[in-house]
């Protein structure tokens, strides 16, 4: 069992999503599988990206998209539920520092992201010949991407007072950023203007770097992606910790 504020909160957050795994794990895996079946059916044979057949190209994108969306969903939905129902006091009354609070929520989000990502990979890698050219990048980008979206989830969960505000955050920020990041296509296939736009989207670098781990080729250098993703994480961490330290919307 756990013997500290951080480890208990982390354990509780993991247990929370695991208890409803059919919603939090199985459902997103099924969604990703449906994307794969539909898009590969339509585009297989027509498109090759980086010399890779389309289905194989698509799989890492779907895995990473699932990691990111579920990492965000975990911290944000847990926090908004706790705030709306009021049981957030159980976490605010004990001697838990704001740093422990932040790390516990973000790491649990990373775990949820990785579990769903692994599930999507297991369910889809039968459909196309997949290589694991540089697996360290796979792990690095999955972890960093999960942590970034987990932190965004903490920010959104703390900021939102109602479920519809959180849904707006998700629908108008998270969804466009992930869908327009090259999950379904290589940004090099886009017109120059949209290529430029995509390069301002941090999620593009998460997915591009992650995909590099599979094929050894990518739109951007994985080192550039690492720099962008690392900077994003540092900025979001600083911002989240500042909110928590001030007690923003948690301690009046």
């Amino acid at each position: 069992m756990c013997h500290g504020g951080f480890s208990t909160l982390f354990y509780k957050e993991v247990l929370r999503f695991w208890k409803v795994a059919s919603q939090t794990v199985a459902a997103p895996v099924l969604t990703a599988l449906l994307y794969l079946l539909i898009f590969s059916h339509v585009l297989e044979g027509h498109v090759k990206v980086h010399g890779v057949i389309y289905t194989a190209f698509l799989i890492p994108g779907l895995v990473m998209m699932s990691v990111l969306q579920n990492a965000f969903a975990n911290s944000s939905s847990s926090l908004i539920q706790s705030k709306v129902t009021g049981n957030i006091v159980f976490v605010l009354l004990p001697p838990i520092s704001y740093l422990e609070f932040f790390l516990a929520y973000v790491l649990a989000s990373v775990v949820r992201g990785l579990v769903v990502g692994a599930g999507v990979l297991l369910a889809t890698f039968w459909f196309a010949p997949l290589t694991f050219a540089e697996p360290v990048w796979i792990l690095v980008f999955a972890l960093l991407g999960g942590a970034i979206l987990g932190s965004l989830g903490v920010i959104a969960g703390i900021w939102a007072d109602k479920f519809d505000q959180l849904a707006a955050f998700q629908n108008f920020l998270i969804m466009p950023l992930t869908f327009l990041s090259g999950v379904f296509y290589s940004v090099n296939s886009l017109p120059p203007f949209w290529q430029q736009v995509s390069h301002w989207n941090p999620v593009f670098y998460m997915i591009d770097g992650f995909r590099h781990g599979f094929f050894g080729v990518s739109d951007a250098s994985p080192w550039l992606s690492l720099a962008v993703v690392g900077t994003c994480l540092a900025l979001l961490t600083t911002f989240s910790l500042n909110l928590l330290k001030r007690g923003y919307k948690l301690r009046a």
């Binding site: 069992m1 756990c2 013997h3 500290g4 504020g5 480890s7 208990t8 909160l9 354990y11 509780k12 247990l15 159980f90 976490v91 004990p94 001697p95 838990i96």
Partner: peptide, 13 residues
């Protein structure tokens, strides 16, 4: 579970 978790928050296992 609620009580075990609450204990853990206080560092008690």
């Amino acid at each position: 579970e609620s009580l075990k978790i609450q204990s853990g928050y206080f560092g008690i296992g």
